[in-house]
């Protein structure tokens, strides 16, 4: 069996707050191979972003405290690395894209300068990424231009001289994708990369992301709250609720035969072309208090199928079909009503 690109096991994370310690990640398990795009979905506060930040170790400790965590990148234990080694890894092996393309660019530096800087920093760890040129800087410039072309920025020579404010939101997000991919990462973590963008631009960015995965054989974690985006873009999906992965598997299985009542509820809340007026189903209740989480399945208090057994212990992920796993004692087996 080959070693997966990214393997997360037993990820338990607590966050200190004024009211006490909140148990925000409760045994997250996720495994990503090259060429796979994993959609990480769930409502606000379910731990999607914290999972992403835990991989690249960007959470300050304290307030974060890892109760347990096994995170390996091609078999290498990320938790055991020194901060310096981790920093090298972040620039080179793990690329990240965040939601807001405006705040992640330096407003006072030209786009070209920012891309060349990233290329030079990445080349310190792996000089082979630079094309042959007179100098390192000339090589970095050539690489930056090439990346801008690849992410579909027209007239890259001229746009290198522009400042971020001269770019539209979609173009800025392309710059950030170029930046994240410039060091040829193996793993790309994209946290809501299209949420701030118009749908037409969103479609372009997601198409670009898919093309980049095919071309560079990356593994991607796409954090989003939009199941439509997942259905259109991802090869796999992991649904999170209150710090747990409650269902995971190939996107078709999960979208067409969602087995966890929470996944079902999430999908019933999205209007489709056939939803009659007033026919949308909201999800009653609220996300549980994570300082004193309910015992057992954290979704049980809102679940219509819950029994006493659900409140006794957290249900483990069990197989529901090839590669399709669900953490539920009473999984739904009928086909989803919308497909």
């Amino acid at each position: 069996m080959t070693v997966p690109l990214l393997d997360i096991r037993n990820l338990h994370l607590a966050m200190r707050s004024f009211e006490g310690e909140a148990h925000v990640l409760n045994g997250v398990e996720l495994c990503v191979n090259r060429g796979e795009i994993w959609g990480l979905v769930g409502e606000s506060g379910c731990g999607k972003s914290l999972t992403g930040l835990s991989i690249s170790r960007l959470l300050p400790e304290p307030p974060a405290r890892y109760i347990s965590a096994e995170i390996t990148l091609e078999g290498r234990d990320l938790r055991a690395l020194s901060p310096r080694e981790m920093q090298a890894l972040r620039g080179k092996r793990i690329g990240m894209i965040f939601q807001d393309p405006t705040t992640n660019l330096n407003p006072t530096a030209r786009i070209g300068t920012q891309l060349v800087d990233v290329a030079l920093a990445a080349a310190r760890h792996d000089p082979t990424i630079l094309p042959p040129a007179r100098s390192r800087r000339a090589g970095a410039r050539a690489l930056a231009l090439d990346m801008m072309r690849q992410v579909g920025i027209p007239d890259p020579e001229a746009r290198m001289m522009s400042y971020p404010h001269e770019f539209s939101g979609g173009m800025r997000q392309r710059v950030l994708i170029a930046m994240a991919l410039i060091g040829r990462p193996d793993l790309l973590i994209a946290d809501e990369p299209t949420t701030a963008l118009d749908v037409s631009v969103q479609a372009q960015i997601l198409t670009l992301l898919k093309a980049m995965v095919a071309e560079h054989d990356l593994g991607v974690i796409l954090i989003t709250h939009n199941l439509g985006v997942v259905a259109q873009t991802c090869s796999h999906v992991a649904v999170m609720y209150a710090g747990n992965v409650v269902e995971r598997g190939p996107v078709r299985q999960v979208i067409e035969r969602p087995a966890h009542p929470y996944t079902r509820a999430l999908m019933a809340a999205i209007p489709t072309r056939d939803t009659p007026r007033g026919g949308l189903q909201g999800l009653e209740g609220t996300v549980p208090d994570l300082i004193q989480p309910p015992p057992g399945c954290r979704f049980a208090p809102r679940c219509t199928r819950a029994t006493e057994a659900c409140r006794a212990a957290v249900p483990p992920l069990t197989s529901q079909g090839p590669g399709h796993e669900v953490a539920c004692l009473h999984p739904v087996t009928e086909d989803a009503p919308h497909v």
Binding site: V199, S200, Q202, A203, L206, N226, L227, G228, V229, A231, Q232, T233, V251, R252, I255, E256, M267, I270, T272, R273, H338, V339
Partner: peptide
């Protein structure tokens, strides 16, 4: 939604991600 007349409308409707695996 069922019979958009303009290219812009068709583009916009086509770009909205539907909850369906292609």
């Amino acid at each position: 939604f069922d019979a958009p007349q303009t290219d812009y409308a068709r583009m916009l409707i086509g770009a909205a991600p539907e909850l369906r695996v292609p």
